[in-house]
Design a protein around this nucleic acid. Structure first.
Lengths: 241, 241
DNA sequence: GGGAAAAGTACTGCCAACAGTTCTTTTAAT
DNA sequence: ATTAAAAGAACTGTTGGCAGTACTTTTCCC
C-alpha cells in the first residue's frame, strides 16, 4: 500500500476506533489494500495519526467480519478469496436473500411497496441510458428496500456483511452480454411476487437471482483468466516489453 | 456475577486473550453472566489476573458475535434476546441448516454416512434409556457431522454461532411431551434424505426441523410464562412469603 | 564458498497510567 | 423540603513503552 490513507481530521475527544475501522474497511473493499497484503499496526497508527489501540481494535473487528485473516504473533493480512470461498458465500447469501424476500412478501407496507416500484421504474430508465454507476446505486437501494421490508435487522446485517466480501467482484457481473437485462427482469419478478404477497415465489426468485449472479461471477472470472493467458502469450512474443 | 470466574493458571508467555475469551463465553452461555448484566473491564481483568487489554479484546470479539451489546462510553452488557430476536435467529438458522443439509446430501462420503448412521442408532438407545444429557450430546455430534459433510466451513461457523445464542433455551425444547420422539424421527428423515442424495428433500427436512424447534421454543416459553403467572397469583395469597 | 550459530530487526501481546465522560452523591441556595 | 450546581466516583478510550517472539542479516567455523 502506498501509504496514502488520508489522516482524518482527528479533532480530539472523538472516538477514533470507528473512524479507523471505516478507513481500513474502505481501503480493503476499494482494494487499496490488496489481498494477501500485510497490515502492520504501528505503521497504520502512524499514518492515521493515532496510537496502536484504535487500529488494533479496528483490525480485530475487520478480522471477525472475515475481511482480514489473523495469524497469531505474526499479524494480519487482507483475506484472499478462493473460488471455493466465493462459491460458499454466494450460496449462503442466496438462502439468506431468499428468506429476506419471503419475509418482505409477508410484511411489506404499502409505502415500501410504492418505493420499490419507483426504484424499478428508475432502473429501467438507467438501463436505457446505459448509466452503469447509477444502476449499481439503484441496485443497492432496491436490495436495501427489500431487506428493510423484511423487518429483520439481523438478517439485513448478515446479508450486507456477506455482500461486502464480493462487492469488489460484483461489478464484473454486469459485463456479461445480456446480464443487465436479465438482472432487471429478475428484479421485476421479485417485485411482482412481493406485491402479490406470494412468499414461496418471492423466496424462489430471490434465491435464483443470487445463484445466477454466482454463475456469472464464475463465467466472468474464467473469461478474465483466459484473457490473462492471451496477454501472457502475446507478451512472450515481445519479451523486451 | 459472584466473582467466581476461576483465574486460569496463567503461566506466562501464553497468549491470554483467547483464554479470557473462552472463559467469558462459557460464563455467558452458562448464564453465570445473566442477560442485561454489565461487564466491567477492570473488574474482570482483576478477577482473571490479567490487564484490561486481553479482556477488552475478548469482549470485542463476543460483541461481534452478538453475545454482548456495546454501548459507547458506557460499556457492555450481556445481550438479551427478545422474542422477535429468537424468531429471527431460528429462521435464519433454518435456511442455513437447510443449505448445509443440501450440501451434505451432495458431498457426503461413505465414511461420514456410516458415522451418521451410528449416531442415529445411538440416539435411539439414548431415547429409550431416557438419558437426556447423552441425547443432547449426540444431537450436537449429529449436527456437527452433517455440517462437516457439507464441506463448507463458513456455513458451519455461522450456524454454530447462531446456535450459541439460543443454546441456553434449547434445552427446554425437549421438555414438551412427544418432542423427543419427533426430533428423533426428524433426524432419521434427514439421514435418509442425505443417504439417498436427495438434495431437495434433505434441505426441506432440515429446514422444517429447525422451524419446528422454533415453534416448540415459543410454546415452551408461553407455558413458562403461564407458570410464572400461576406462581405469582399463588404468592399473592401468601404475601408473607 | 557453504552452512550453522549469533546478533540484529520488526513486529505483536501485554501492561500501567492518563484523559475525558457519564452517572451519583453531596452541597448549597431558594 | 426542593431543586440546581458542584464535587466525586466509576468507567471507558487512548497512549506510549516494555517484553517476548518470529524473521533477517551477519558472522564465524568447516
Amino acid at each position: 500500500m502506498d501509504q496514502n490513507l488520508q489522516q482524518f481530521n482527528s479533532e480530539d475527544s472523538e472516538i477514533k476506533q470507528p473512524q479507523v475501522y471505516q478507513i481500513l474497511r474502505q481501503a480493503i473493499l476499494g482494494e487499496q489494500l490488496k489481498p494477501g497484503e500485510r497490515l502492520v499496526e504501528r505503521k497504520l497508527a502512524m499514518q492515521l495519526g493515532v496510537s496502536r489501540t484504535p487500529v488494533r481494535e479496528a483490525i480485530r473487528k475487520l478480522e471477525s467480519e472475515g475481511l482480514l485473516k489473523h495469524i497469531p504473533r505474526k499479524g494480519v493480512v487482507v483475506a484472499r478469496l478462493s473460488p471455493q470461498d466465493a462459491w460458499e458465500i454466494y450460496h449462503i447469501r442466496a438462502v439468506l436473500e431468499g428468506l429476506a424476500a419471503r419475509l418482505a412478501a409477508e410484511w411489506i407496507t404499502a409505502k415500501e411497496l410504492e418505493h420499490l416500484e419507483k426504484l424499478i421504474a428508475e432502473m429501467e430508465k438507467a438501463v436505457e441510458a446505459k448509466d452503469l454507476n447509477y444502476l449499481n446505486e439503484l441496485n443497492s437501494q432496491f436490495n436495501d428496500a427489500v431487506y428493510g421490508a423484511a423487518k429483520s435487522p439481523r438478517l439485513k446485517q448478515m446479508i450486507s456483511n456477506l455482500y461486502d466480501y464480493i462487492v469488489s467482484f460484483a461489478r464484473v457481473g454486469y459485463s456479461l452480454p445480456g446480464r443487465i437485462q436479465e438482472v432487471l427482469s429478475e428484479h421485476r419478478a421479485l417485485f411482482e411476487a412481493i406485491k402479490k404477497g406470494d412468499v414461496e415465489e418471492a423466496e424462489r426468485v430471490a434465491r435464483k437471482h443470487v445463484e445466477r449472479s454466482c454463475e456469472c461471477y464464475f463465467v466472468r472470472r474464467a473469461l478474465a483468466e483466459q484473457e490473462d493467458a492471451e496477454r501472457l502469450k502475446k507478451s512472450r512474443n515481445y519479451p523486451h516489453l
